[in-house]
Amino acid sequence: MQIVPSNPQPFQPIPIFITEMASPDTIMSVSASTSTWISAASPALTNHSTAPSLGEKTTTIRFVDTKAFWDLIDSTDQELLAFHNVFPQDFIRLDQERQLRRRGIRFRRYDTRERILIVLIPGGPHEQLHLKLYREYTNHVDRMGLEDAWRDHGATRFFQQQGHPSGNGGEGDSGGSPRPQPNGRSWPTLVIEAGDSSSLEELRRGMRWWFSTSNHEVKIVLLAKLDRAGRRIILEKWVETTPPPRPGPTTRAASIRTPNCDQEITIDWTENTPVEIPTSYVVTRGDLRLEFSLLFPRPPENPREHDILITVPRLQVWASTVWETVVELQA
Rank of each mutant, 00 (worst) to 15 (best):
D65K: 07
D111P: 02
K57L: 09
P13C: 14
W209G: 02
D148C: 06
G206E: 03
D262A: 11
Q78E: 13
P13N: 04
E236K: 00
E240K: 05
F159Y: 15
L190Y: 09
E276T: 13
E276K: 12
T60Q: 09
R135Q: 11
T266C: 02
R232H: 02
A155N: 14
S280C: 14
A41R: 09
T58D: 00
Q162G: 00
P297W: 04
R101F: 07
S75W: 00
F107L: 11
T321E: 15
L222N: 08
P299G: 00
G206A: 01
T325S: 15
T19S: 13
V282L: 09
P297R: 04
S199Y: 00
A40R: 11
L295F: 06
A319K: 07
F159A: 06
Q181I: 11
S23A: 11
R246Q: 14
E271P: 10
P259Q: 02
N47L: 03
K225G: 03
G145C: 10
V322L: 11
S198K: 01
Q128N: 13
K67T: 12
S23N: 08
P245D: 05
S31T: 08
D268F: 09
F107V: 01
T156Q: 09
T138I: 15
A40Y: 08
E79T: 03
K57Q: 12
T284G: 05
M21S: 13
W323Y: 09
L100S: 07
R113T: 13
E201Y: 00
G55M: 00
R62L: 10
V86C: 14
